[in-house]
Write a protein that binds this DNA or RNA. Structure first.
Lengths: 257, 257
DNA sequence: AAGTGGTCTAGACCACTCA
DNA sequence: GAGTGGTCTAGACCACTTG
């Protein structure tokens, strides 16, 4: 009995009685993976359940096998499914880690219904400090937009966020920044985020951080430093954020291939 | 001039004069992506360089286009390349984030040449605390292996690691644990890690942690909590680790699709 | 209009697992 | 031996970007 998952006499899932929209712009593989994800999340496909095999699934949905594979692969990459040759495809985890959409804190909180709000502490144009110029791949002495914000969740101060942007993204107004995440505003300007590199660490709170976050100086803070790139490889933003660790943590899903 | 990357009159890279091994077991797409990654990392393909288009590349290497696409996609997923329809494929970043191989701290340090060593503090079989049983998806009151280790890097204490495993993985000997990472030992037993969910946070050091890590009690620690699954969806391990934040941080690369 | 990546098809053969 | 996923082919048409 090395396969405890098969205890429950799981039969291949035959749901997915879906009609696909072949005329619209939404890729078939995406339509399929979305419905699979939904079935997993609402429990129709419990942990351990086996998915119908690729060939049959393809035949039943009238798509080719590569299309089905693409749909399944997306869920594998999100940590929801596991494939084993000779065995089949099973649900590993009931939660599908949503597309790592390069979410911002604002959007994360909004999704959780935590009523985010923002206080703008600083909005200025400065000469980039050398580390910042370096991270933004800009020449030394270049002017950049610098902003510092205090993010609240449900009325409690959660994070101090410091960001640096090339001037070309600098069309940010104060009222906008109070109501929307920085990433929302940039997307509205047509910026598309593609890649981000983050470094997550910890350190003690400086005096002003402690005051802003209502903790005692010297208490621990979670830190995140991020450089974000758009789809042409241009650097969009460099940020250094600190979080109250009792109110926030990073969830990361790793999948090996 | 919205494409500063094209300043350098970049011509499509025509390297990759490679002969593929079509007889061996290594997939063609993997051979191709490996060599592309190498070319990116040693600077033959600098940031901003454009890759030869998919069709030509396929013709030149005598493989089909889907095979080339698969190779390129792997590098896109690793944050090294960016594709744009109508434009082409460019290098965004000189570092290829190695397959998120579900690396362990031991392996990370080894790769950096930091001479990891481990002191085994505890190795015992206990009744799983309820949180642990829950994370391991085991019934309450189940026996599990519990270990607690102190990890050194280049002679300095870096991390206190506490792990819980189902008994079936319990064949761990003390001397082995001193010289190898836990993940190495489990792999040697035939365990293949597939998915892990981590939660990264921060908190203050407890008294014994402070003593072990040679920091003052109350100073900040970086924390990581992880549940790892194998390729059959079985839980392998649940761990709670703390790190000295002046010596360690987590690097995360996010890619949107 | 030409060039690029995005999607999709309808097959093929292989490697692995299990009964 | 039957069933499964893993790899690969040789095309097709489309959507988007640029000159």
């Amino acid at each position: 009995m090395t396969q405890p998952l098969s205890e429950s006499s799981l039969e291949p899932f035959d749901g997915l009685r879906l009609q696909l929209d072949r005329s619209g712009p939404i890729p078939l593989y995406y339509q399929i993976s979305q419905r699979l994800a939904a079935a997993i999340e609402d429990g129709q496909l419990p942990v351990g359940a086996r998915i119908e095999n690729e060939i049959d699934l393809a035949a039943r949905l009238n798509v080719s096998r590569p299309t089905i594979r693409r749909a399944i692969q997306d869920l594998v990459d999100q940590g929801a499914l596991v494939r084993r040759r000779g065995i089949g495809t099973q649900v590993v985890h009931g939660k599908v880690t949503r597309d790592v959409v390069l979410t911002s804190l604002h959007e994360d909180l909004e999704a959780l219904g935590r009523a985010p709000s923002t206080e703008l502490l600083t909005l200025e144009t400065i000469t980039a400090p050398s580390e910042v110029a370096n991270e933004l791949s800009l020449p030394l002495e270049t002017e950049v937009v610098h902003l510092r914000r205090l993010r609240y969740s449900a009325g409690t101060a959660l994070s101090v966020m410091e960001n640096y942007l090339p001037l070309r993204f600098g069309e940010l107004s104060e009222p906008e920044l109070a109501d929307h995440g920085l990433y929302q505003l940039l997307r509205a300007q047509g910026v598309t985020f593609k890649v981000a590199r983050q470094k997550i660490g910890a350190r003690t709170a400086a005096k002003d951080e402690a005051r802003l976050l209502e903790v005692t100086p010297g208490s621990p803070l979670l830190t995140m430093q991020r450089t974000a790139y758009d789809n042409s490889g241009e650097v969009i933003e460099f940020g250094r954020h600190v979080y109250r660790p009792d109110l926030y943590a990073f969830d990361v899903t790793l999948v090996s291939r």
